[in-house]
């Protein structure tokens, strides 16, 4: 089985099959670039991911392994019928996978899925963020996501006025 070494920003190396790694758009490109530039067709590619630490990279690879036989979703799969992308493929395994994570880890996972071009993972993590927003007040959202209001002048008041207009009518 052809393998590839994927190395995280903090130096941890993961040995994975190339077939699995190619489920990531970014890793696939890197492997193909390595193949073109390498004289030795048997050489094992080594890919450094300088933006993703090991804990997160392990989670991404774990998710890829679980979903290695899933179809690769196109970017606009559900634009026409109005369904959310994540509604298509979120399984009980995915829910169990995401359940213990705090929001900080989820954010890192989103960034990693985006960087490595793993659309399925990006979809379910974004969906998780959406679920944390749904049904919350603005203060609860700010607290949950550690956000500050940086509206200038009376911009926030103006926005509240617009919202009130929409709600009251």
């Amino acid at each position: 089985m052809a393998l590839v070494r994927v190395i995280s920003s903090d130096g941890a190396a993961f040995l994975v099959s190339q077939r699995l790694a190619k489920r990531s758009g970014k890793l696939k490109t890197e492997i193909e670039t390595f193949r073109k530039s390498s004289d030795n067709s048997e050489a094992q590619p080594e890919i450094r991911i300088v933006t993703i630490r090991a804990e997160i990279l392990r989670l991404v690879l774990q998710w890829l392994q679980q979903h290695q036989n899933d179809p690769v979703l196109p970017a606009n799969q559900n634009e026409q019928d109005g369904r959310g992308d994540a509604e298509m493929g979120q399984s009980q395994w995915d829910r169990d996978f995401l359940a213990p994570m705090d929001l900080g880890i989820v954010m890192e996972l989103i960034l990693a899925a985006n960087h490595l071009e793993v659309k399925g993972l990006l979809d379910i993590t974004c969906k998780l963020v959406e679920s944390k927003i749904t049904g919350r007040t603005v203060d609860e959202i700010r607290t949950a996501f550690k956000l500050k209001s940086d509206f200038k002048g009376n911009e926030e008041e103006q926005t509240r006025l617009e919202n009130r207009w929409c709600v009251e009518n």
Partner: peptide, 13 residues
Amino acid sequence: NRKDLLSCRLVNP
């Protein structure tokens, strides 16, 4: 839900 939408508009610019 429209209410969620309006809450999000108030989070930050």
